[in-house]
Amino acid sequence: MRIVVTGASGNVGTALLRRLTAPDSGHQVIGVVRRPPRPAGVYANVQWRKLDLAGPDASGELRTILDGCDVVVHLAWGFQPTRNTRYLTRVGVGGTTAVVEAAHAAAVGHLLHMSSVGTYAAGRYGRRVDETWPHTGIATSPYSRDKAAAEALLDDYERRHGDAGVPVTRMRPGFIVQRAAASGLMRYALPGYVPMLAVPLLPVLPLDRRLRIPLIHADDVAEAFVRAIERRATGPFNLAAEPPLDRDDVAEVLGAKAIHVPSGLLGALVDVSWRARLQPIDRGWLDMAFSVPLLDCARAGDKLDWHPQWSSLAALADVLKGVGQQAHTESPPLRRRSMVEQARRDLTQGLLTTRRLP
């Protein structure tokens, strides 16, 4: 098949390319990204197209790229700069609009959209929900609001076009990790002045004892996408590993001592430090971690015959091992994290949370 993947050089995109470009796959893969990677390793057997989905004519440019393609997998999303939420919305919601419009105009056979557990409303923290739970997001999280808005666009598209429209699949995974993404994840999560190697050496873990979140390895997310493509399976699918991750699990994998700090106090500290530009994560991410439900993945098991191969603990250990190794890839989003580079960009382009582009 001819498959177009937006955001193909990111965390999930890299894992998906490992499957779609395998020697026996037979697929022609076109990667649509803002910053094409050097064609090496897993990125070598991909036709790269440079396109910023936040641009004013993204839909028209994408329409040309999608001409004659069988499947489009929409993974592109923005996580920084957290203070420029207008840009992040243009990437996430505006980019999804561009993909849907272009896919419809090109009469693409199948659209797969990367949603998230963050699309779900609060109300069942620590308990499982299936795909019928309201996908209206967490109001205090810009990321969650945009994920919910993107799904609302898909709802509207399906109402307007019904069976005459492009068939749509929505993947709703928990928090996604893998070793190869360690540098990329830490670039967006750690202050530039904190070395990655400090993370595995943390002696204590100050977190609320109530923490229970769904986690999943990127390889298992990629497998779900491949199975949905092969089966032409549509609709929403929850994706998460077992068991749900709690505070003590995180402390055990880190080898740190867990200390109870109420989420409200943690939220206030995160907010103050973010506003003081001491660290790059806004409070919305913490609010989401203590609001989103756990995931019932029975539908993925039934319709896709999908079962995660990585446990949540193994997935967390994999990415933390990557942090200790400063793991990275040839992709710009997943490149090696360099404190020198971050300091240079902070001085020349502005802080990560405020600069025009991440």
Rank of each mutant, 00 (worst) to 15 (best):
L211I: 14
A228F: 07
V270T: 12
A224G: 06
A241T: 01
V270H: 03
S183V: 14
L185Q: 11
S273M: 12
Q279V: 10
R232I: 01
T234F: 06
A258D: 04
L215V: 15
A218I: 13
A258N: 10
G174V: 07
G264W: 13
D219N: 11
V199Y: 03
D208W: 00
R172P: 04
V168I: 15
A240P: 04
G264E: 11
V272F: 03
I229N: 00
Q178A: 15
A258K: 01
A276D: 02
S183P: 15
G235M: 08
P262V: 10
D282F: 04
A182G: 09
T169W: 06
E223S: 10
D271V: 00
W274G: 07
D248G: 09
L254V: 07
P173D: 03
V221T: 06
A218S: 13
A182S: 11
A256W: 07
L205Y: 05
A256Q: 10
E230V: 09
R172K: 08
R172T: 05
A224Y: 01
P195H: 08
L205H: 03
L269I: 14
F175W: 14
L265C: 04
P191D: 12
A180H: 12
A180V: 11
V270P: 10
A240V: 04
D282S: 01
A233M: 12
V194D: 06
P280M: 05
R232A: 07
W274R: 04
P214Q: 14
V250S: 05
A181N: 11
M196K: 01
G267H: 02
Y188H: 10
E223A: 06
E252I: 05
A198R: 11
D249W: 01
V272H: 00
D208M: 13
L215N: 02
L278V: 13
I281E: 11
W274K: 00
G192R: 11
L202K: 08
L215Q: 05
R179E: 13
L245K: 03
I259H: 09
A218V: 11
G192M: 09
V177K: 03
P206W: 06
R227L: 15
V166R: 07
V253G: 03
L207Q: 09
R187I: 09
D219Y: 00
D219A: 12
Q279N: 11
I176N: 03
Q279A: 06
V272K: 08
D220M: 08
D246C: 15
A198T: 15
E230G: 03
R170H: 04
A198C: 11
A218W: 04
I176E: 09
D271T: 05
A240R: 07
A233T: 12
R170Q: 14
V221C: 10
D271N: 13
A240N: 02
T169G: 05
S263T: 14
P167T: 13
R247I: 07
S183Y: 03
A256D: 05
A189H: 12
Q178K: 10
L202C: 10
A233S: 14
L190K: 05
L205W: 06
A218F: 07
G264V: 14
M186F: 02
R172I: 02
Q279L: 08
Y193F: 13
A228Y: 00
A189C: 15
M196E: 14
L197P: 02
D249C: 13
P236N: 01
E230R: 14
R275Q: 11
Y193R: 15
L245N: 01
